[in-house]
Computed example of a mutant assay.
Amino acid sequence: MRRITGRASLRVLTRVGVAVAAVSLAAACTSNTPENEGNDSENNGQANAASSNDDPGETVVIGFSGPEADHGWLAAINSAAEAEAEKYSDIDLRVAEGTNDPSQQISHIETFINEGVDAIVLLPTDGAALTEIATEAMEAGIPVVNVDREFSSEFAARTTILGDNYGMGVSAGTYACGLIEENNLGSDAVVAEIAGIDSLPLTQDRSQGFKDALAACGADVDHRVAAEFTVESGEAVASNLLQAVREIDIIWNHDDDQGIGVKAAFDNANRDEFFFIGGAGSANAMRWIQEGEMEATILYPPTQAADGIRLARLLAQDKGMSDLVQVEVPRRIVLNAPVVNADNVEEYLPLGFES
Results as ranks from 00 to 15, higher is better:
4 I>L: 13
16 V>A: 10
16 V>Y: 04
17 G>S: 05
19 A>M: 10
19 A>E: 11
22 A>C: 05
23 V>Q: 13
27 A>L: 13
29 C>Q: 09
29 C>Y: 12
30 T>A: 15
36 N>S: 12
39 N>D: 14
43 N>M: 12
44 N>Y: 11
45 G>D: 06
49 A>E: 12
50 A>D: 12
58 E>D: 14
59 T>I: 11
61 V>L: 08
63 G>S: 07
67 P>R: 15
68 E>M: 08
69 A>L: 04
69 A>D: 13
73 W>S: 04
74 L>R: 15
74 L>A: 10
75 A>D: 09
76 A>H: 07
77 I>N: 12
79 S>Q: 15
80 A>L: 12
81 A>N: 09
86 E>H: 09
86 E>P: 02
93 L>T: 06
94 R>L: 10
94 R>C: 03
96 A>F: 04
98 G>A: 08
101 D>L: 00
103 S>N: 14
112 F>G: 08
117 V>G: 03
118 D>K: 02
125 T>H: 05
126 D>G: 10
127 G>K: 08
129 A>W: 04
129 A>S: 15
130 L>E: 05
131 T>V: 06
134 A>G: 09
134 A>D: 03
136 E>I: 08
141 G>Q: 06
144 V>A: 06
147 V>W: 07
153 S>F: 09
166 Y>M: 08
167 G>M: 11
181 E>K: 10
183 N>W: 00
187 S>T: 13
190 V>A: 01
190 V>D: 00
191 V>R: 04
194 I>H: 03
196 G>W: 01
197 I>E: 14
199 S>C: 03
200 L>E: 14
202 L>K: 11
202 L>E: 15
202 L>A: 15
204 Q>F: 04
209 G>R: 09
211 K>E: 14
212 D>P: 03
216 A>D: 15
222 D>V: 05
223 H>C: 01
223 H>P: 02
224 R>P: 04
225 V>W: 01
227 A>I: 06
229 F>H: 05
235 E>Q: 15
238 A>D: 01
240 N>V: 07
242 L>P: 04
246 R>C: 02
247 E>D: 14
254 H>V: 10
261 G>L: 00
261 G>K: 00
262 V>R: 00
265 A>W: 00
269 A>P: 08
272 D>Q: 12
273 E>N: 08
273 E>G: 14
273 E>Y: 05
277 I>Q: 01
278 G>F: 00
283 A>C: 03
284 N>V: 11
284 N>T: 13
289 I>P: 02
294 M>W: 03
297 T>H: 01
306 A>H: 01
306 A>I: 07
309 I>C: 01
309 I>F: 02
309 I>A: 04
311 L>I: 11
311 L>P: 01
312 A>G: 07
314 L>A: 12
320 G>P: 06
324 L>H: 09
326 Q>T: 15
327 V>H: 13
328 E>Q: 15
329 V>M: 08
330 P>D: 01
331 R>A: 14
331 R>P: 07
339 V>Y: 04
339 V>C: 03
347 E>R: 13
355 S>W: 07
